[in-house]
Amino acid sequence: MRPTLAALLLLASSALATGEFTTEEAGGKVTVKLDGKLYTEYRTDSKVPYLHPLSSASGACLTRHWPMEPGFKEEEDHPHHRGFWMSHGAVNGHDFWAWTTKESDPKIEHKGLRERKNDAFTVELAWTAAGKTQLTEERTYAFKEIDPKTMAITVTSKLKAPEADALFGDTKEGMFAIRVDRTLRQKGKEAKGAIADSEGRKDGAVWGKKSNWVAFTGPDEKGEPAVIAVLDHPSNLRHPTWWHARDYGLLAANPFGIHDFEGKKDKHTGDHVLKKGETLVFRYEVVLHHGDLESAKLAERWAEFAK
C-alpha cells in the first residue's frame, strides 16, 4: 500500500523539524541544552556576564576556549574577551570593557533571573561603578534552530539610567561582542578564517565601517566549514552600526565609537546621553551556521530578523 499524500507531508515535516531547547538555572548560571546536549551557558563568574560556549551543528566550539577552560592551548590575550558578551568602555567615564585588578572596578552585576522558558530567559543586571548603579538592564536571550545546520541567538537589551543621566562615551572599546575560535581568525598559528560584511567588504576593509551584519568564516576546530555572524537590528541606535572587527578574532557591534572608526578629530562625536528614567533598547542576533557564507544566507537571515 502506497503512503498517502498526508503521510508523505508528515514525513517531510518531521525530517525538517527543529530541535528542542531546555534551560536550567542554578547558582546564577543558566544552562541551555538542545535535544538534551549542552548548547551554551550563561555565566556570571566574571565582572561581565557572558555565554560560553557557542557551538556549530558540527559540535565544534566557534568561540574562544581560554580563559573559560584553563590550560587550553591558545593565545592568552585580552582576558575580558569571554565568548559572547556585552559591555562598553565609557559609561559616565567608567570602563566596563577592559579589566584591571582593583576591587572597585566597574562591573555588570547579575541581580537575578526574571523569567525562564524552554527557549529563552531574561536576567536583571546592574552596571555599577564608584559605589553607584550607573545603569540597570533587562536582557533577554532567545534561542532558535532555524534548520539542522543553522542556529540563532537573539538578544534584547533594555538599558535605563536610574539615578541620573548616563553618558555613553565615544570609544571603539565596546559593545556587543564575540571572540571567535582560533581557526576562524586571520591572525595566529591556526588562523584560516576570513571576514565579510553585508556590503561586500572583506577582511581588514570591514573594520570601522557601517553594515547590517558582519561574519567570520572558515574551518571550525574539526576542520569543517563554519560561519558565525552578528546582525544589527534596524531599530537600534544609529543603525547600521559600525563594527570593531579584528584579525585576531574580535567581532563587536559598536554604535558609539565614531571618532575612532571615522578618524574624527572631535573625540565626543559618538557620545550619546541616556536621560534619567528613559530606556535605550538594543536588539542583536548571532547566527551560527555549519557551512559556508553562501549557504548561510545571511541577507535572508537579516531580512527576517529586521521584521
Rank of each mutant, 00 (worst) to 15 (best):
A196C: 03
F216P: 02
G218A: 08
R139N: 05
W242E: 02
K264T: 04
D170A: 10
P49N: 07
V206E: 12
G71M: 11
D45W: 01
S198E: 00
Q134M: 10
L54N: 15
E294Q: 15
L62S: 14
H272Q: 05
E76M: 04
K172S: 15
H81T: 14
E145G: 13
E221S: 15
G200R: 03
L184R: 13
T31D: 03
W85K: 03
R139E: 07
S198R: 00
P219D: 10
E173F: 12
H52V: 06
A177R: 03
V286G: 10
L237G: 02
S295R: 13
P106D: 15
D260E: 14
T241N: 01
N118K: 11
A303Y: 15
H289A: 00
L280H: 11
L34I: 08
T22Q: 12
L167G: 06
P225Q: 11
P219I: 07
F72Y: 15
T23W: 14
I178D: 02
A215N: 06
R64N: 12
G28Q: 03
L54E: 11
E262A: 15
S58P: 09
F216M: 06
T63Q: 14
T156A: 09
E224P: 06
Y248V: 12
L38K: 13
L10Y: 07
D77F: 05
P67K: 13
A17G: 03
A296V: 01
V32H: 07
K209N: 00
R179G: 00
G169C: 06
L10I: 09
D105M: 11
D77P: 05
E294S: 12
K47E: 10
G169T: 08
S46A: 09
P148L: 05
P234Q: 01
W97P: 07
A15W: 10
R185Q: 07
I108V: 15
A161F: 01
R139M: 07
E163G: 09
T140V: 03
G257K: 06
A15E: 11
K265F: 10
D292L: 11
D181L: 08
R185W: 00
T40P: 12
I108L: 11
E173Q: 15
G19V: 07
H268W: 02
E224F: 12
A142E: 13
A245S: 03
V286D: 08
A26V: 04
K144D: 09
K149I: 06
G83N: 00
N212M: 05
C61L: 07
L251S: 01
E221T: 14
V273F: 05
Q134F: 02
H268L: 06
C61H: 09
R238K: 11
M86L: 13
G112E: 08
T279P: 13
A194E: 05
D119K: 02
T269I: 09
V214G: 02
E137I: 08
F84S: 14
T150M: 12
